[in-house]
Simulated assay, not measured.
Amino acid sequence: MIKLTARQEQILNLIKDAIENTGFPPTRAEIANELGFKSANAAEEHLQALARKGAIEISPGTSRGIRLIGAAASASAAEPALPKVPAALLMSLPLIGRVAAGSPILAQENLEASYNVDPALFSGKPDFLLKVRGWSMRDAGIMDGDLLAVKKIDSAKNGQIVVARIGDEVTVKRYKKTGTLIELLPENPDFKVITVTPEDEFVLEGLAVGLMRSWH
């Protein structure tokens, strides 16, 4: 049993809630803001303490590189399915590669393969895997070539990471809606915010509910 201070327990619960609600852990700045710390450094000190106690694993170089491990691990800590999971409990998910212009995301021509995975690995039951292309979500820990587990939806909450289609382009971004204005926010300062105008053909294709490192 991991012995945590009250503050460490609070931060661990905040991480769990963020993963459950958005599919991804919070940044240091978000933790500091939520708990009233004066700086992100205070959050970092608590995260390092949690890492030393074996409750989390920190990946350097990304602002959301936090993973629950051990007894603290939750369904959102997505890793490739392990062989010991009984085959009867696995679900088959189609892998979507490059999406053909004008075709539904699950159209036959977009399917590259299928994977048998343990649904307990994700914060929600996914409908498909999407191969991530590019580095616009790097600081959320989503890298080029990763497999994003996606649940089909038709609406999203601010802050959630979504798969959206604008015209013939499919993109992974953080969702923000203010009034009638929709913005798709990257997690990499090298990329620009995408503003969806009323003239754009816009569709929410799904909600990110977990991530699997691509095997290559």
Rank of each mutant, 00 (worst) to 15 (best):
Asp154Ile: 12
Ile142Thr: 04
Ile96Lys: 07
Ser136Arg: 08
Tyr115Lys: 15
Val99Thr: 06
Ala113Phe: 08
Pro104Leu: 00
Gly97Ser: 08
Ala77Arg: 11
Glu109Tyr: 01
Ala75Ile: 04
Arg138Met: 11
Pro94Leu: 00
Glu109Thr: 09
Ser155Leu: 04
Asp144Thr: 09
Leu106Phe: 01
Gly124Thr: 04
Pro94His: 10
Leu121Thr: 13
Asp127Ile: 00
Ala77Trp: 06
Trp135Ala: 13
Val150Gly: 01
Leu90Asp: 10
Ala120Thr: 12
Leu130Phe: 04
Ala87Leu: 14
Gly97His: 03
Ser136Ile: 11
Leu147Phe: 13
Arg133Leu: 11
Ser76Asn: 11
Ala87Ser: 14
Asp146Cys: 05
Phe122Glu: 11
Lys131Asn: 05
Tyr115Phe: 14
Phe122Gly: 10
Pro94Cys: 06
Leu129Pro: 08
Ser114Cys: 03
Gly124Phe: 01
Val132Phe: 02
Ala75Asn: 15
Ala100Pro: 00
Leu93Ser: 00
Ala87His: 07
Ala140Glu: 04
Ala75Glu: 05
Pro94Thr: 06
Ser123Gln: 02
Met137Ala: 02
Gly102Tyr: 05
Leu106Ala: 08
Gly134Pro: 08
Asp127Ser: 09
Asp118Gly: 02
Lys84Ser: 14
Trp135Glu: 14
Ala100Thr: 03
Asp118Pro: 01
Lys157Ser: 03
Asp144Ile: 00
Pro119Gly: 01
Glu109Arg: 10
Lys125Ser: 12
Leu147Asp: 03
Asp127Gln: 03
Val150Glu: 04
Leu121Val: 06
Asp144Trp: 13
Pro83Gly: 09
Glu79Val: 11
Lys157Gly: 05
Lys84Gln: 15
Lys152Thr: 08
Val117Asn: 08
Ile153Asn: 09
Arg98Thr: 10
Pro86Ile: 11
Asn110Tyr: 08
Glu79Lys: 14
Leu89Val: 05
Gly145Met: 11
Leu89Thr: 05
Ala81Glu: 12
Ala75Gly: 15
Leu82Trp: 10
Arg138Val: 15
Asp139Pro: 07
Ile142Gln: 07
Ile142Glu: 01
Leu121Ser: 12
Lys131Ser: 02
Asp127Val: 00
Leu121Glu: 11
Gly97Lys: 03
Leu121Asp: 09
Lys157Val: 00
Tyr115Glu: 14
